[in-house]
């Protein structure tokens, strides 16, 4: 396991060059080391003066179920957006399946599936129409789209919801519709931002089963979540982000170090804030 104290994990360009990540000419290598589904070096993004992601390094082996956790505003969503080509980083590089993302956008997008957290879909389409639309956007043949749509809608229990406009669906249902959209081209690397949020337990189990089968087939799943129990149960590797930086990364058992992942998380991101108050007024209904 790697743990990072303060800001020591940021990789300056010179250091990165010694590390072999920047070529002698000073350019970012288009190809990266084999065996990794995702590699990130020195990823940086700031909005105005506020640093959202500050020099992130990450290695995610192929065929792993990788959990990215962190408190609200830690930079998880920004990181996932930069890794999927949806947000241009200020600095740093990302390699997906061995190819640098920002030099090979088309190739990258062909091998990844994305389920964003905010889930802004074309809401005036029905679930089934949205799935067909997404499959054809990705250049799949119409027959393949039809077959896979039918299978995915059935597995996720969406056969009935498929005829309803997305705008009329609940938040959980929208998540369930977004997931088949991310899966339809059978991506080698799947990025899921809070995939289990607002999803009922039965559907969550179906989703887990599909994702586990996806991993077995050699694919990699990277997902962010606030539910530590879920991450602990599902992920073989985990990274904890705080204030735009990694504070720990490695196999899940190593990161939690004999405690629960939640305890490790609370310890690493700043401890228990409630220790100074006894909240004696709670439950008294006093004005």
């Amino acid at each position: 396991m790697r743990t990072f104290e303060n800001d020591s994990q940021s990789v300056p360009r010179d250091e990165a060059r010694e590390d072999g990540w920047v070529s002698a000419e000073g350019t970012i290598p288009v190809e990266a080391a084999a065996g990794y589904a995702l590699q990130v070096r020195g990823l940086h993004k700031a909005y105005g003066g506020k640093v959202a992601v500050g020099g992130l390094d990450l290695d995610i082996p192929a065929s792993s179920f990788f959990g990215l956790v962190g408190p609200n505003g830690a930079g998880k969503t920004t990181t996932l957006k930069m890794c999927t080509g949806l947000l241009r980083p200020d600095a740093g590089a990302v390699w997906v399946d061995g190819a640098e993302v920002w030099h090979n956008l088309a190739r990258t997008k062909a091998v990844i599936g994305v389920l964003p957290e905010d889930l802004l879909l074309f809401e005036r389409l029905t679930g089934s129409e949205l799935l067909t639309f997404n499959g054809l956007l990705r250049g799949l043949p119409a027959d393949t789209v039809a077959d896979r749509s039918r299978e995915l809608l059935e597995v996720f229990g969406l056969t009935e919801a498929a005829a309803t406009m997305v705008v009329d669906s609940t938040h959980g249902m929208k998540k369930k519709i977004g997931l088949p959209c991310a899966l339809i081209q059978g991506p080698r690397l799947l990025f899921l931002d809070e995939p289990f949020e607002a999803v009922d337990p039965v559907s969550a189990r179906s989703i887990r089963t599909v994702l586990e089968r996806h991993i077995e087939s050699g694919a990699t799943v990277v997902f962010s979540s606030h539910v530590m129990e879920l991450v602990e149960r599902l992920c073989d590797r985990v990274a904890i982000m705080h204030q735009g930086r990694l504070v720990a990364e490695g196999p899940t058992d190593d990161v939690r170090a004999g405690t629960s992942l939640e305890d490790a998380f609370v310890r690493l991101v700043g401890g228990d804030r409630t220790s100074g108050s006894d909240f004696g007024w709670l439950g008294t209904s006093s004005g």
Binding site: T84, G85, L86
Partner: peptide, 14 residues
Amino acid sequence: LDGPAFWMNVAAGG
């Protein structure tokens, strides 16, 4: 008119 949902087209590449 697509609004934020345009990310689907962007993410699809092509």
